[in-house]
């Protein structure tokens, strides 16, 4: 599966469009990470636990998007966009979407 956030796959030509595909996941942070983050909030710096959590979740959202694209018979997804929204205290939704296409 070829992925790109440009409007075409560079160096290839789009033959067919299959429409929008999307993947999303809602994740909550667990209490151990939250405790460490509370300490880090005093001294500043990177919150490694949160960084990893968001990276994993984003990967999962992308996997779901790819599965959806495979189902419709696409071999690439173009114009991918990401968005993050916090929907409740301590939970975040990671969403990604793109256009499934067939390229040659």
């Amino acid at each position: 599966m070829l992925l790109s956030n440009t409007e075409t796959i560079p160096g290839k030509e789009i033959r067919e469009f299959y429409g929008l595909v999307a993947g999303s996941t809602v994740r909550a942070k667990h209490i151990g990470r939250d405790f460490m983050a509370g300490l880090k909030n005093i001294i500043g710096g990177e919150l490694t636990g949160y960084s990893e959590l968001l990276q994993d979740s984003r990967q999962e959202a992308m996997n779901r998007m790819e599965e959806q694209a495979k189902k419709v018979g696409a071999n690439a997804i173009v114009n991918i966009r990401f968005s993050t929204s916090s929907i409740a205290q301590g939970a975040a939704e990671l969403y990604c979407y793109g256009t499934a296409v067939k390229v040659e």
Binding site: L3, S4, E7, G11, E46, Y50
Partner: peptide, 27 residues
């Protein structure tokens, strides 16, 4: 938004980087 016209592309791939950074108490 696209590759400059004089460049021929061999491969392309989506790349992602992210980080979470907190501010300290004093700041």
């Amino acid at each position: 938004k696209s590759v400059p016209a004089n460049i021929e592309v061999k491969t392309s791939k989506l790349v992602i980087g992210s980080t979470v950074i907190s501010i300290d108490y004093f700041k």
